[in-house]
Write a protein that binds this DNA or RNA. Structure first.
Lengths: 194, 194
DNA sequence: CCGCTCCTTCTACACCTGTAGAGGGCAGTA
DNA sequence: TACTGCCCTCTACAGGTGTAGAAGGAGCGG
């Protein structure tokens, strides 16, 4: 993917995050990216190509990410929980737009199976999680890591879309951070059967 | 909501589930509902009204639902897990379309706050869950039920969109059912700190 | 019977979107 | 300088979409 395409894809991600899949049009991306109208249409000739561009870019960004979960330390449950909380907390704040766009694309992939291959998101975090769980003595890291990632994903989704209970804490506040860590630790404990 | 509007809203839900928010147009709903073109446009004059109709209908359907979690039985963790598994399993199979539409609407609600009020989904299951957790001796049913629902939601989302690990079991198979129950039980154990 | 109201269907029209292709400038090369 | 290939910008146009309002018709009170 050329640099220019990446820039357009980034703008497209922003559009998806703020206006939803419905707002993802060639012209909207042009406007968002500040390029002359028609540019996006030239680089992503069809809308399908544009969506695939977004998905591809999301995958690239995810894979480029360095997830430092604190390896090589004496690993315990609390440390792991905190590392996971770091990652997922960032998904809710710094990478909020990307996360929203990812959910939108996942939903989109439901009726466009060809997107699913690219969108094997969580592949990397999941693999890492699997490894860490194995070190912690999990009996079935494969299944358990999957459940755990689903849990964290659910937590993020739940809080991002504001579907949580009334009076849900604002994302990014210390309270929610502490609460998040606690929830993750509890889930880890449960999944590990400890 | 009149009967006719409900029928249109149901068709609209189907459209959203199968074609996504982007496919939700007055004419598409007309076609899906088998009514003469223009009907949907007459009952939901603007697109915003149409979306709100969908959201309202989803909320109504959710609230009309009888969730029999086996009250008045000697309550234990396994029973609760199985009850929850029943509900959420159905969300993945029978009520699959509604669930997909709900996720789409939740995402939509991100940039349309007025939808959020109607979409207080899970309000009822969550309240019930809270009660049951309290009976089981949970120390903070409010927070814990929320986390638990987020977990279950994440699990459903994860499996519905096929974002799960490669080789994910097909939804609806006995394997996934058993696996689901096990995961829920584990999560319950973790959340309850038992 | 008339007239009224409500529900439903039909139609018009401006605007938005997807898509294709024509032009235009700017290297680098002979 | 002329040429060639490439990247970028601009424009056209068919079709889809949102929205409003007119037309039709069934039921009902007078």
């Amino acid at each position: 993917m050329t640099e220019r395409m990446a820039a357009l894809a980034d703008a497209a991600i922003h559009v998806v995050a703020t206006k939803g899949m419905r707002g993802l049009t060639h012209r909207a991306v042009d406007a968002e990216a500040g390029v002359p109208p028609g540019s996006t249409s030239a680089y992503f000739r069809t809308r399908k190509a544009l969506v695939e561009g977004v998905v591809q870019r999301l995958a690239d960004l995810d894979n480029a990410e360095v997830v430092d979960a604190g390896r090589n330390l004496p690993l315990d449950l609390d440390l792991l929980a905190e590392g996971a909380a770091n990652v997922f907390d960032r998904w809710m704040s710094t990478a909020r737009e990307r996360t929203l766009a990812r959910y939108a694309c996942l939903l989109e992939a439901t009726h466009h199976p060809e997107l699913r291959g690219i969108l094997a998101h969580g592949e990397r975090p999941r693999a890492q999680m699997r490894e860490l769980l194995a070190e912690l003595g999990a009996e079935d890291p494969e299944t358990q890591s999957r459940d755990l990632v689903a849990f964290l994903d659910g937590l993020v989704f739940d809080r991002l879309v504001g579907a949580g209970a009334l009076g849900a804490p604002t994302p990014g506040t210390p309270e929610s951070r502490a609460e998040l860590t606690a929830a993750i630790r509890a889930a880890l404990r449960g999944v590990l059967g400890k």
